[in-house]
Design a protein around this nucleic acid. Structure first.
Lengths: 268, 268
DNA sequence: TCCTAGGGTGTACGTCGTACACTCGTCAAC
DNA sequence: GTTGACGAGTGTACGACGTACACCCTAGGA
């Protein structure tokens, strides 16, 4: 959003009062490098080389590599579209999250870097605050909004925990054969693979059922299931009969280890 | 599950036909090191030192560091309790996931290592297969079961994407003051912090609403919301009127970039 | 007795992040 | 015009890291 022009202007105007935009240049080339080569391509030395500068020069603008990664995340999160105005909370949340997903798909390394962060960056804080605002404006109590954030988890930032990206969405013959061999050890996985292959052959109806494993469809399916659940809770909280929460949670916590407290991290 | 005894027996029986259990010893001490010092404590050199051996010795039993990490994950995932027999699908899934969570809380590094894996390990494959079996036995179609796995996401392995673990669950005075200062920039976060603090003062009612941010409660809340949603879909799929899916997903995909295909990874 | 193979060793390379001391330009104050 | 401070880029160096490669040593079979 105009940051490029800004950075250029800063570098150009060698006579300007000052040119503090060097950090931006570093972050932007770091993002570019990551876009090309993935997470493991991000190294201080490579960024410096790309900038035609000695590695230690970066440290005049960036505290350390962690700070650099935080800055990169801020660049990416800053690309998420702002919330749309005037929509009901559900579509506002939905569209915002889908925008976040689009952004993260443009920067496939970002999800992994995000996971490795240990504290939120300014852009993320702003993003969460605005997301909370959507919920509150939609009639959520602070408590229910808090739960909603936890329920969304990483999906709120546009990605689900997609483990094992090698399980290609369209199983090829080799995969089918392999899993068929293991069918007696892993019968259910084999069944799934069979079904995926069948759906694929029958001409890829993107309607979830029978179709091949389409991550966009799956993402939206999960998102909508969760939004529907929240909508129901919101409605029941307005009836006000009892505090809104899903069924099984009405009992007290069931299985927590008493010694967990220190081990469990807490998100926002 | 008897692996200790097995490993011991292997090391003991210096006269046995062979003692191929060296890999186990390596994995177990690696897990111990990670339990003590976190992810960044895991290095080939440190593991070797702990074993009183030169670093390169490890490579006779482990392909490389990635293989080592996979092995460590298998050790951890192997600690998850097997599914309980004879229960309905919902409680079976619920209990299994809570067991996974307990396991992951015992090994706080494991979630982060899991996230970094690029392909599933044998123990994870077995875990997923058995989880799929629960769903299918509960009456899920293969398709709905597939959606269910996606909906669960990382929760199925016992952790939610808990970003930013420094936001301590009980905000102290300093945090409250800090966020109050930023209240006009981040009004909604400030509201949440206030509410959390208030709940905390009013004597920690663990009943979600009004209580401090308790990650166990939040985890179960999200889990139950999702399980409730799946239950509803299962019921509606049995009525058979239409294919079961959440509301908004009934329209075709809305916002996917046409060029996404290669960028989006696909989980099982 | 020798051969072989498997497990442990030693050395070495390239990469990484970054501490520390330096140079060099620009500019304000005198 | 000289000086001195300061911000930005440099150079060198250190201690990690993962791991390739060649070596040894020992036990067991021929």
């Amino acid at each position: 959003m105009g940051e490029i022009a800004e950075a250029k202007a800063g570098a150009r105007g060698a006579r300007g009062a000052r040119e503090p935009l060097r950090r931006d240049r570093i972050l932007r080339t770091a993002v570019a490098i990551a876009d090309e080569g993935g997470v493991e391509a991000i190294s201080m030395r490579r960024i410096a080389r790309r900038l035609g500068v000695v590695p230690m020069a970066l440290y005049k603008h960036v505290e350390n590599k962690d700070d650099l990664l935080n800055g990169m995340i801020d660049v990416v999160v800053g690309e998420i579209d702002p919330a749309i105005e005037g929509a009901d909370w559900k579509t506002a949340v939905r569209e915002r999250i889908l925008s976040a997903r689009r952004t993260l798909l443009r920067h496939p390394w970002a999800a992994r870097v995000l996971e490795s962060r240990t504290e939120p960056t300014p852009a993320i804080i702003a993003y969460f605050d605005s997301m909370m605002g959507i919920f509150l404006a939609g009639g959520f109590s602070v408590d229910l909004m808090h739960h909603a954030l936890h329920v969304m988890g990483s999906r709120i930032l546009g990605f689900s925990q997609e483990l094992f990206d090698d399980a290609s969405s369209a199983p090829d013959e080799e995969a089918i054969a392999m899993w068929s061999e293991m069918a007696e050890r892993y019968p259910n996985i084999a069944a799934l693979i069979r079904e995926l292959a069948a759906g694929q052959i029958s001409h890829e109806q993107a309607t979830a059922v029978g179709g091949a494993c389409d991550t966009q469809v799956e993402f939206e399916f999960a998102l909508d299931l969760i939004l529907d659940g929240l909508e129901r809770l919101l409605a029941s909280s307005r009836d006000g009969s009892d505090v809104a929460r899903p069924s099984a949670s009405k009992e007290a916590r069931t299985t927590a280890d008493p010694d967990d407290a220190s081990a469990s991290p807490a998100p926002i």
